[in-house]
Amino acid sequence: MNREGTLYKVVLLGVLCAICGLLLGGVNALTAPIIAEAAIANEKANLEKIYPGANFTAVDFEDESGMIQGVYSAEGKGMIYKIHGVGYASDGFDFLLAFNDDGTVGGYQVLAENETSGFGKRCFEDEYVSQINALTTSDTAPLLSGATLTSTAVQKGFAAAVALFNAR
């Protein structure tokens, strides 16, 4: 074939791209499961607190609220949502919220927070936690007077998780 012809150049680039694409596809098939597992590894200790011994996989999601940080499915048990809310402290707080497959709340677990003791912090104490644990996906999370900002953030996060749970 004529080296200077357009056809030669097109074929050369095409073949090269095809080889590179195949190579990338192969390595991706090899590394994708490891990467997915590593993504869960950081969260696994926390996820285990809600569904001990379950088989977790990270789930792709599209969240309109911007509060959902991660979605994990516990095989045969339910879904766990990692949620970031901003209450009184501007750094916000992180919590896990789980829904069992039947739509009841499977767990509510705070991961990191810096809310005011006696006010915002009440959103992560036993009384409020047991209220959340008694809910289902058709409810909205209750507000706490004196902890309005923090409980509003929890309520919004709860709604965002419900929206994703229903959209499954």
């Binding site: 150049k9 680039l13 590179c20 490891i34 590593a38």
Partner: peptide
């Protein structure tokens, strides 16, 4: 094998592929 006019795209495809491979392996 590479004609002069397309040597930059050819080299970039090769380099980009290698970098992506290394990136995927490092991420894993």
């Amino acid at each position: 094998l590479t004609p002069d006019e397309i040597h930059i795209p050819v080299y970039i495809v090769v380099i980009a592929t290698l970098v992506t491979l290394v990136g995927m392996l490092m991420q894993a």
